[in-house]
C-alpha cells in the first residue's frame, strides 16, 4: 500500500513510517499541510493519514482545498486528531469526503487494520 503520513510532529511520522514499512507498506511523509496537499495532488496514494492540528495550513485547510478542487474522493483520507477538534467539525469533514477519523493516541494494530491491504 502506498501511504502518505501528514503530521507536523516528525517523531510521530518517523515512528509510524518505521512501523508501516516493517509491515510492508510504502510510506511517504509530509511535515506540513501545504507539502501534504501538494503530494496528494501530484501523486496517487492508497491511504492518507492526515493530522488536523497543524500550524499555518491545517488538516482542515487540506480537506477544504481538496473538496473545492473535487479531488477529495480520489484518496482514502483518514483524519488523525487529538482532542482539539469537536465531533461536529469531524462530521462536517467526513461529509466533505474524508473517509474516517482516528483519535490520538491510536494503537498501531488498529492503524494497520484501518489502512488494510
Amino acid at each position: 500500500m502506498k501511504v502518505l503520513l501528514v503530521d507536523d510532529n516528525d517523531t510521530i511520522t518517523e515512528m509510524m513510517s518505521k512501523y508501516l514499512s516493517a509491515k510492508g507498506h510504502q510510506c511517504s511523509v509530509a511535515n506540513d499541510g501545504r507539502t501534504g496537499l501538494a503530494l496528494i495532488t501530484e501523486k496517487k496514494f492508497d491511504v492518507v493519514l492526515l493530522d488536523l492540528a497543524m500550524p499555518d495550513f491545517t488538516g482542515i485547510d487540506v480537506i477544504e482545498s481538496l473538496h473545492k478542487s473535487g479531488k477529495i474522493k480520489e484518496n482514502k483520507i483518514i483524519l488523525f486528531t487529538a482532542s482539539s477538534v469537536t465531533d461536529g467539525e469531524i462530521d462536517a469533514l467526513i461529509k466533505k469526503g474524508a473517509h474516517s477519523c482516528l483519535k490520538k493516541p491510536v494503537k498501531l494494530a488498529v492503524l494497520l487494520q484501518v489502512i488494510g491491504g
Binding site: I12, Y19, K104, P105, K107, A109
Partner: peptide, 20 residues
C-alpha cells in the same frame, strides 16, 4: 483543550514505540 492536545501528542509516539 490545548494542554490535553499537547499531552496526547507525545503519547502517540510513546505508546506507538512500546507497541512496536
Amino acid at each position: 483543550a490545548m494542554v490535553s492536545h499537547e499531552l496526547k501528542t507525545p503519547l502517540v509516539t510513546i505508546s506507538g514505540y512500546a507497541e512496536m
